[in-house]
C-alpha cells in the first residue's frame, strides 16, 4: 500500500507503514501482483520477514483485491469472503469473529467503502491483538545467574533447532551461554545439540541417551553456576501435551530448576510450529498448566502461508511472544515485533 494513501485514509496508520517500495499505479493499490512497483533494495528484518510471509500476503491481500474488483461498496458477501480468508489464514474462529465484528460495525456506520479502509481496520484490529504480547526476554544482570531458558514443546516443532539459533543469537549479543542436552529420549537428539554447540562454540552439558532429563539439567545448572554463565538454554524431549506422564516429567524438570535456586530467573519457552492449526492453543494451555509457560517462540513462519494462529494465541492466552523463526539460517530467529510483522503481512507493495 502506498504510504501516502494510507495517510489520507487513516492518518493514525502512517507510523505503521514502513514500506520500502513505492507504487506507481494507484488504481490497483491492493494488488501487488498487478502493480508496477519500484522496489528499493531494502536490507534487514523487514525484507526477510516480507519474503517469509509472502505467501500469507498472497492469500490475504490478493484475494481481498480480487474481491473488490467492480464492487463500489462493501456488502455481506464481501465480508463473508473476508471471514473465509481469515479462517484460511489459521486465525481461528474466535480471533476471526473478533475482527469480523469490528469490520461489520465499521461497515454499518458506512465508513467502509473501499478496500483500503477495510485493510486499515484489519490492520488496526490485528495490531490490537498482537501488541500486548510483544515482549522480549529481558536479561536482568542484577538477578541470580544463570538466566534459564527451558525449551519445551510437542514433537517436531523445532525445539533443538531453535536452541541452536537462540545460542547463536545470545552469543552474538556477547552473552556467556551454556547448553543442556535435556532430550535424552529421541535417538541422536544429544548429538544434534552437540553439533550446534560445536558450530556456535558453546559448551554442551550432556549425559547418555536415556538418562533422567531433570538430572541432566540439574548437572547443567551446577556447571553454569561454576562457570558463571549468564544464560543456560535447556533442551527437553518433544512430548504431546495430552500425555499425562510425559507432562508430569516436565513439571518435575521445572521443579528441579526452582529447587536448585528459587531466585533463578526462568523462562519456560514453548516452541510452536506455525503450520499447526488450532491445536496450538491446546498445546499452549496444557504446557502452561504443567510448566508455567512464560514465553512463546513461533517457528517455521517461512513455510506456512499464514501463521495466523498467533492471533488466536494472543487473543486467548496472553503469553508473551518472544521470537519468530522465519528461515533456516541461524540469524533467521528474530525477536517478535508486532508492527513489522503486521506490516509485512499486510503490505501489498512487495
Amino acid at each position: 500500500m502506498a504510504p501516502d494513501l494510507v495517510a489520507v485514509l487513516n492518518p493514525a496508520l502512517v507510523r505503521y507503514s514502513i514500506t520500502t517500495s513505492h507504487q506507481v499505479s494507484i488504481p490497483h493499490m491492493f494488488g501487488f501482483k498487478k502493480t508496477a512497483a519500484v522496489t528499493a533494495p531494502a536490507p534487514g528484518i523487514l525484507d526477510r520477514l516480507r519474503n517469509g510471509l509472502q505467501k500469507t500476503r498472497a492469500v490475504l491481500c490478493t484475494d481481498i483485491e480480487d474481491l473488490f474488483k467492480g464492487k463500489p461498496a462493501i456488502d455481506e458477501s464481501v465480508l463473508d469472503e473476508i471471514e473465509n480468508r481469515l479462517l484460511l489464514a489459521d486465525l481461528g474462529v474466535d480471533a476471526t469473529s473478533r475482527i469480523m465484528a469490528a469490520l461489520r460495525a465499521e461497515a454499518k456506520r458506512n465508513k467502509l467503502g473501499t478496500a483500503a479502509e477495510v485493510i486499515a481496520v484489519l490492520r488496526q484490529q490485528m495490531l490490537e491483538i498482537l501488541l500486548p504480547v510483544q515482549q522480549n526476554i529481558e536479561l536482568d544482570a542484577s538477578r541470580a545467574r544463570p538466566h534459564v531458558i527451558l525449551v519445551v514443546g510437542v514433537n517436531g516443532v523445532g525445539k533443538t533447532t531453535t536452541i541452536g539459533k537462540l545460542a547463536a543469537y545470545y552469543r552474538q549479543l556477547g552473552s556467556d551461554v551454556l547448553l543442556a542436552a535435556g532430550d535424552t529420549f529421541r535417538a541422536a537428539a544429544i548429538e544434534q545439540i552437540q553439533v550446534w554447540g560445536r558450530r556456535t562454540g558453546i559448551p554442551v552439558i550432556a549425559q547418555h541417551s536415556g538418562a533422567d532429563s531433570a538430572a541432566v539439567i540439574y548437572d547443567a545448572l551446577q556447571s553454569a553456576r561454576a562457570r558463571q554463565a549468564e544464560i543456560l538454554i535447556a533442551d527437553t524431549a518433544g512430548r504431546l501435551h495430552n500425555k499425562d506422564n510425559l507432562m508430569g516429567e516436565l513439571a518435575k524438570i521445572r521443579r528441579t530448576i526452582s529447587r536448585f535456586d528459587p531466585e533463578l530467573p526462568v523462562e519456560v519457552m514453548l516452541v510452536l510450529d506455525a503450520t499447526t492449526g488450532q491445536n496450538a492453543l491446546a498445546q499452549a494451555e496444557q504446557f502452561h498448566k504443567l510448566a508455567g509457560v512464560t514465553g512463546i517462540t513461533l517457528t517455521k513462519l517461512d513455510g506456512t502461508a499464514k501463521g495466523g494462529v498467533i492471533f488466536a494465541l494472543a487473543h486467548k492466552l496472553a503469553i508473551p511472544l518472544r521470537f519468530i523463526g522465519i528461515g533456516e539460517q541461524a540469524e533467521d530467529l528474530r525477536p517478535f515485533a508486532a508492527e513489522p510483522f503486521i506490516e509485512a503481512l499486510l503490505d501489498t507493495g512487495a
Partner: peptide, 12 residues
C-alpha cells in the same frame, strides 16, 4: 503429514 497441521495442509 503431521495430524496437527492447520489450513496450510492444503498448500503443502
Amino acid at each position: 503429514v503431521d495430524s496437527m497441521l492447520g489450513q496450510d495442509a492444503v498448500n503443502s
